[in-house]
Nucleic acid binder design. Structure first.
Length: 293
DNA sequence: AACCAGGCGCATA
DNA sequence: TATGCGCATGGT
């Protein structure tokens, strides 16, 4: 069987793309760790999701991950989306020279940081503020169903900035986003007009990129950092929410260790996930038992 | 029935 | 610069 692409170890079997299990990619750990909000567990244990206007069914068995739907979508979307050209084994070895990070990595070694679209990541994390994961998912789902382009079979793309820019906050009432509705409309108008140049954020100097995002009402330091990390591939960015705040206060009072330099955002994801879901990871705190579907 | 949820804007000192 | 409060909504 011919490789569908060089570098990431994928090959084609029939119409599916196969990723041999490297130990560096767990579907639940990656898709259900609070970084993306459109992935649903399927009865067969796999996941279904939509990104960049394409739907995807992905399944994991003992020895491999199977991406259904063909090599074209894989090359166009999923290879980049799942960050398959980054060597997470190497990243994890580096991070594991620190004892706390080593624990976080060992707890969930299949966590990857997804490379989402800037606009979707921005909206998702505007919605996330003072909110919980199950409800964030519900709001995003209703937003897509109401305003996203139909892709067939009841599936919808994430709505474009242009589409949302034409709305008033009240038009978003059915989404039940609460006070965040006007933030979404403001973001849409600034993105659609080019007042905030989202595609430029991937290569702008960090402070400038942060400043651009914070022109949007409802985008503060944390949401801006999320948009940059999850939406713009800026893996040095560290969103500091309540969980990461606790990790830093209690375990890294002097900041993240030197081994995380340049990939602080990836380190953050392992730490965030462990702090939230691994009992006893945070001293003097019970982790959440579960969240969401 | 309060309290919380991957925060932010605004007022006040 | 630094706190404190209200905010829509829904689940414990």
């Amino acid at each position: 069987m011919a490789p569908v692409s060089t570098g990431c170890g994928a090959f084609l079997r029939g119409n599916d793309v196969i990723l041999p299990d490297s130990g560096d990619f767990s579907l639940p750990e990656t898709l259900d760790c609070g970084q993306a909000f459109r992935w649903k567990r399927l009865p067969d244990g796999g996941f279904f999701g939509v990104a960049r206007g394409r739907a995807c069914h992905i399944a994991q068995t003992a020895g491999e991950i199977r991406i259904l739907g063909g090599a074209e979508d894989f090359e166009a979307v999923w290879r980049g989306y799942f960050d398959l050209d980054r060597d997470y084994g190497e990243v994890k070895r580096r991070l594991s020279s620190d004892p706390v990070l080593a624990r976080a990595v060992a707890y969930a070694p299949g966590v990857r940081v997804l490379r989402q679209e800037p606009w979707e990541a921005l909206c998702s994390f505007i919605i996330s503020q003072n909110n919980n994961v199950p409800r964030i998912k519900g709001i995003v789902e209703r937003l897509c169903a109401a305003f996203g382009e139909p892709l067939g079979e009841g599936v919808h793309a994430f709505p474009s900035p242009e589409r949302l820019a034409a709305l008033e906050p009240d038009d978003l009432a059915p989404i039940r986003a609460g006070f965040r509705a006007r933030y979404l409309v403001d973001a849409a108008r600034k993105a659609a007009s080019g007042e905030v140049d989202l595609p430029a954020l991937a290569h702008l100097p960090l402070e400038e990129a942060r400043g651009e995002l914070r022109k949007i009402t409802g985008v503060g330091a944390k949401v801006a950092e999320c948009a940059l990390l999850y939406g713009c591939g800026r893996v040095e960015c560290v969103p500091i929410d309540v969980w990461v705040r606790r990790v830093l206060d209690r375990l890294y009072p002097d900041g993240l260790p030197a081994c995380a330099r340049g990939v602080e955002g990836l380190a953050q994801q392992y730490l965030f996930h462990a702090a939230r879901t691994c009992p006893g990871f945070l001293p003097g705190e019970a982790a959440q038992s579960s969240d969401g579907r």
